[in-house]
Computed example of a mutant assay.
Amino acid sequence: MHYFKIFILCLNCFWLNACSTHVSDYTNSSPDFKLEHYFNGNIKAWGILQNYSGKVSRRFTVDIKAKWDGNQGELKEYFEFDDGEKQTRIWTLTKIANGVYEGQANDVIGTAQIKQVGMAVNLQYQLSVPVDGDSYIFTIDDWMYQIDDKRVFNKSTLSKLGVEVAQLTIFFEKQ
């Protein structure tokens, strides 16, 4: 019976992975979401963090100052949470090829892998998050969808040891 449960668990994991979205699913979508075009200038964002049960645990706003010089981009993100906490994240982005970027930030472990196809951008990275005086590392699966020249919608899942623990939703508007 024990082996049967393991088999069913593995089969479920395979099925979930087979059904997951890939950035290539957006090949024929538009507008063409180029990070160096959209994230250049001032951007305002609003977001929520939901825990594993879907309950909103935090709300926040973000002011972003972004600029590009050739294939190098810098995004300065200034977060303000509903409880008054403030955080700053500074991303350094490098365009490797058409649709392929890498990113680094002060609280990102290693390098974020970024792929763009059509209207979609997918970021994969690990993030160190302070929680009650400790720091936890989460795996982030971050999806951005360009709506038009001024607006981007962002949906991220935060996982720990392969288990989804939270979701982040952000709406960006270019100023």
Results as ranks from 00 to 15, higher is better:
Ala105Gln: 09
Asn51Tyr: 11
Asp63Ile: 12
Ile114Thr: 03
Ser53Gln: 13
Glu164Cys: 02
Leu75Ala: 08
Ile43Asn: 04
Ile170Leu: 07
Ile8Gln: 05
Ala45Glu: 04
Leu11Asn: 09
Thr111Met: 08
Ile140Glu: 04
Tyr3Ala: 14
Glu102His: 14
Cys19Gln: 15
Gln126Leu: 07
Leu16Asp: 04
Leu49Val: 15
Asp82Gly: 15
Asp107Ala: 05
Arg58Phe: 09
Thr27Cys: 07
Met1Ala: 15
Lys55His: 08
Asp134Pro: 03
Lys115His: 15
His37Lys: 12
Ile140Tyr: 02
Asp82His: 13
Leu127Met: 13
Asn122Thr: 01
Ala112Ile: 12
Asp69Tyr: 01
Gln124Cys: 00
Ser30Glu: 12
Ser20His: 06
Gly73Thr: 06
Asp142Phe: 07
Gly84Asp: 09
Ile140Val: 15
Val121Leu: 01
Val152Ser: 08
Asp149Phe: 04
Val152Leu: 09
His2Trp: 11
Ala18Asn: 13
Gln146Trp: 09
Thr94Phe: 04
Ala18Gln: 13
Val56Gln: 12
Thr27Phe: 06
Gly41Leu: 05
Asp134Gly: 08
Asp82Ala: 10
Gly103Ser: 10
Lys115Ile: 08
Phe4Gln: 14
Gly84Met: 06
Thr92Ser: 13
Cys10Ile: 14
Trp15His: 02
Asp83Trp: 12
Gly41Met: 08
Val100Tyr: 11
Cys19His: 13
Gln104Ala: 09
Asp132Gly: 08
Ile114Asp: 03
Asp107Leu: 10
Ser30Cys: 03
Cys13Pro: 00
Thr92Trp: 10
Trp68Pro: 05
Asp69Cys: 08
Arg89Pro: 07
Leu9Trp: 12
Phe60His: 03
Glu164Gly: 00
Gly110Trp: 07
Lys76Glu: 13
His37Gln: 13
Asp82Gln: 07
Gln72Asp: 10
Tyr26Lys: 00
Thr92Ile: 09
Tyr3Val: 03
Gly84Lys: 14
Gly133Cys: 02
Leu9Gly: 01
Ile109Cys: 01
Asn12Phe: 11
Glu74Thr: 15
Lys174Cys: 01
Leu35Val: 02
Gln72Ala: 10
Val23Trp: 00
Cys10Pro: 06
Asn51Cys: 06
Ile147Lys: 14
Ile6Pro: 04
Lys160Tyr: 14
Gly73Tyr: 07
